[in-house]
Write a protein that binds this DNA or RNA. Structure first.
Length: 598
RNA sequence: GGGCGCGUAGCCUAGCCUGGAUAGGGCACCGGGUUCCUAACCCGGCGGUCGAGGGUUCAAAUCCCCCCGCGCCCGCCA
């Protein structure tokens, strides 16, 4: 059940004329009954998708209270005073509710027309001029993705797709952290002659090095061992620290950027399989190089709560920003004059604010405090704007604990995809022995990546997730492959009917089966779902919608013959085409491949 | 200790922003369905003190308070 809420009735929403008609007739009825109420108020109280008793419901409790009347009696009177219109077939009261049932033929007609008119843009909102930046993933380029980090990428990419569909000009950015100790550790080991590698680190690379191994895997392989090694060896720590200093002074080892880039490219290749690409890459060190970090430091030094620490470091006393007691002093410049991550992040965000009307950051929950610290520093330099943070919870392993690269508990994205492809291939071969091998591979890849993407995006970001292989690799029920299968079914009907490309003439009166009307109702919801999901960043809403749509399509498919039907044939084909279009648009929003056959 | 998030059937989950009529799905389990457009499907059944308590309200899974449990963070790391 959803409220009409923001009272918008855009032309991109098939419900708009129905809502307007209902508001008008209800208002008229209320006035006739001697009641005064603003149409805005009435609009807010309307409930859409109200259930079995009607399409739209109006609860009278509030109005009853205002007028001192009994809700049920009021509902009866209001219902009786509503005229039938071309849009509204019946108005009935039930208890305290006035239920409106729209003219089904009208709804079918309006919805299918809109779907065909807008095609790939059905469900999308009106274009807006305000550019939006979505920063997501931004994982340190130190090795392959594990599934925990991929949650960021999937949520961020889906948010970007939804925002675009909602009409916003979106730019996605990956913030490449090439400045930290972690990046320095990689450079430290790979710029050292192999003969000088400590034995325990060399072990991690020798023996398993495969030709054609992805660079993120290959170059990142020694990383966990370096971590452990540095804990025990001070001299090595000093060498890494020297590299960090070189990077911070703007003179990194020449191989540094190349190595970082190589690992990043391997990581991006994995995301590419999931349909995730970035418009821009922003390198953290660039803000140092172009002087903007110095600018931020200057502004922070004269900020209202700037304090100088004993050893010459500078901080903001951020007590009033509601930070935890122990971190109220936010240091933005070290005693040795170098900058910190949060300082550079301020510079980065100022650069974003200069270009974008809205700035969204997808962050893991471990960055919660960083987000608040960043906000505090922005406030201190008088920057009124703030990023919108989308914080997601960790993916943990069943044994307990977060996924750890070092602890060996990580589930690698590449491994997961490999396993998913193996299973998907077996499923395809089991039922489609007619397909050529390359076609089998193509389908298996799409099914596998679709299953993984959907498995992550279906769950609200703020929910913690425990990773389980059986669940992640499920191809049934509420899964990506279920959606793709439904799309393939619809495609198959159109293919066999010889009408893959339309046009799709139809007569709404021929679509009288309850399952047909039910399917149209689901189709008609898409524009509102997209608007809602984009506005609230509830990316899981589109996942739920796509399942509802596929589910209802399958019910219709079983209940009603299409190609073998008589006078209804053309209209049913049109309905299948519209369902395929909407489902396809939903798959696009989720980043799942449309499969014409599987 | 403080901050943030989470707690809905055996398991997973939607709904919470914006309170509204019998809380939607999926997995598992039980019983059906394929001379017909793809059975990765469909139909039926089973299963709920919405963590506990209190408050606000005509009305609370939804808002407020408190408590319990779980996770994360609280660095001159990133």
């Amino acid at each position: 059940m959803s409220s009409a809420g923001d009272r918008s009735t855009p032309p991109s929403d098939p419900w708009s004329p129905f809502i307007e008609a209902i508001v008008a007739t209800l208002l008229e009825s209320a006035r006739a009954a001697g009641l005064t109420l603003a149409d805005a108020e009435l609009f807010e109280q309307l409930e859409l998708d109200a259930g079995p008793d009607g399409d739209v419901a109006f609860p009278t409790h509030r109005l009853a209270r205002q007028s001192g009347r009994a809700p049920a009696e009021l509902a009866g009177q209001l219902a009786a005073g509503c005229r039938a219109t071309p849009f509204v077939r019946a108005v009935r009261s039930k208890g305290a509710y006035v239920n409106f049932e729209v003219q089904p033929e009208r709804l079918i007609d309006a919805t299918l027309r809109l779907v065909f008119a807008r095609g790939a843009r059905f469900g999308h909102g009106e274009p807006s001029a305000d550019p939006v930046c979505v920063e997501h993933t931004s994982a340190n380029p130190t090795g392959p993705f594990h599934i925990g980090r991929v949650r960021n990428a999937i949520i961020g990419d889906t948010l970007a797709r939804l925002s675009r569909a909602a009409g916003q000009p979106v730019t996605t950015q990956y913030y490449v952290d090439d400045m930290g100790r972690q990046a320095a550790m990689i450079t430290w080991i790979w710029t050292k002659p192999r003969a000088e590698w400590p034995e325990e680190i060399r072990r991690t690379v020798d023996g398993e090095e495969a030709p054609g191994e992805k660079p993120d895997r290959h170059r990142g392989r020694p990383y966990p061992a370096i971590s452990a090694y540095l804990k025990e060896h001070e001299a090595a720590r000093a060498e890494v620290a020297e590299i960090v200093r070189a990077i911070e002074s703007g003179r990194p080892p020449p191989e540094h950027r190349t190595l970082t880039q190589a690992i990043l490219s391997g990581m991006l290749a994995s995301l590419e399989r999931l349909g995730i690409r970035f418009d821009e890459f922003v390198w953290e060190s660039d803000f140092l190089r172009d002087g903007s970090v110095d600018g931020v430091i200057e502004r922070l030094r004269v900020a209202p709560h700037a304090v100088r620490e004993e050893n010459g470091a500078w901080a903001i006393d951020a007590a009033e920003y509601g930070l935890p007691k122990e971190s109220t002093h936010v240091v933005f410049q070290r005693g040795d004059g170098t900058s910190l991550y949060v300082t550079r992040d301020v510079a980065y965000h100022l650069a974003k604010f200069a270009r974008f009307a809205r700035v969204a950051d997808v962050l893991g929950q471990d960055h919660q405090l960083h987000a608040r610290t960043l906000n505090a520093l922005l406030a201190e330099i008088g920057e009124p704007r703030r990023p919108e943070f989308l914080i997601y919870q960790d993916i943990t392993v069943p044994e307990g604990g977060r996924m750890s690269t070092r602890g060996g508990s990580a589930v690698w994205l590449d491994h997961l995809l490999e396993e998913a492809v193996t299973r998907a291939r077996a499923e395809v071969l089991r039922r489609r022995e007619d397909l050529p091998a390359d076609e089998v591979e193509r389908i298996a890849e799409s099914v596998a990546t679709g299953a993984v993407r959907y498995h992550i995006v279906r769950i609200a970001p703020e929910k913690p997730v425990v990773f389980r292989w059986e669940e992640a690799l499920s191809f049934e029920g509420r899964s990506g492959p279920f959606l793709q299968y439904s799309y393939a079914r619809a495609s198959s009907v159109l293919r066999k009917g010889g009408v893959e490309d339309g046009p799709y003439p139809f007569d709404a009166a021929r679509l009288a089966d309850p399952e047909e009307l039910a399917l149209v109702r689901v189709l008609a919801r898409l524009p509102r779902v997209v608007a809602y999901a984009a506005r609230t960043a509830h990316v899981q809403a589109i996942a739920g919608y796509a399942h509802d749509l596929a589910d209802q399509f399958n019910r219709f498919y079983h209940a009603v013959p299409v190609l073998s039907s008589g006078a209804e044939r053309a209209s049913r084909i049109a309905l299948v085409a519209a369902a395929r279009q909407s489902l396809g648009n939903s798959l696009d929003l989720l980043g799942l491949d449309r499969l014409a056959t599987m």
